[in-house]
């Protein structure tokens, strides 16, 4: 049997909020829902469920932030190429 635990698994709530508010994807909201499950399952004594919810919460905020970061990088790459092309075509 699993013994009583005192510390809940990381619920990733802070990063869930951050990723919801700085990127604009519903993925952050999903992460908040899983964060809520971490707390409620841990209080109910379902430690494995809480661990699973913790992993899901982590996955979803990483997805949310990664999509935002990818967006910035892609936009920078497109504008970088366009900028270099503009310089190259204007000087010669």
């Amino acid at each position: 049997m699993e013994q009583e635990r005192t510390t809940p698994p990381n619920n990733h709530l802070a990063m869930a909020i951050i990723s919801t508010l700085i990127c604009c994807l519903p993925a952050g909201v999903v992460s908040i829902v899983y964060a809520s499950q971490v707390n409620s399952k841990f209080i109910a004594g379902d430690y494995q469920g809480a661990e699973r919810a913790s992993k899901n919460a982590k996955t979803w905020w990483i997805i949310s932030l990664a999509v935002a970061a990818a967006g910035i990088i892609i936009m920078l790459a497109i504008y970088g190429i366009a900028f270099i092309a503009a310089i190259a075509s204007s000087e010669f």
């Binding site: 919801t20 508010l21 700085i22 990127c23 604009c24 994807l25 519903p26 952050g28 935002a68 967006g71 910035i72 892609i74 936009m75 920078l76 497109i78 504008y79």
Partner: peptide, 26 residues
């Protein structure tokens, strides 16, 4: 400047999401 990505939700629906405006706010 236009190299910051636009919110895909706003682009697709015209509505504001909870994250819209954060880039300007930052």
């Amino acid at each position: 400047v236009s190299f910051f990505p636009q919110c895909p939700f706003h682009y697709a629906t015209g509505l504001h999401c909870p994250g819209c405006g954060t880039q300007r706010a930052i």
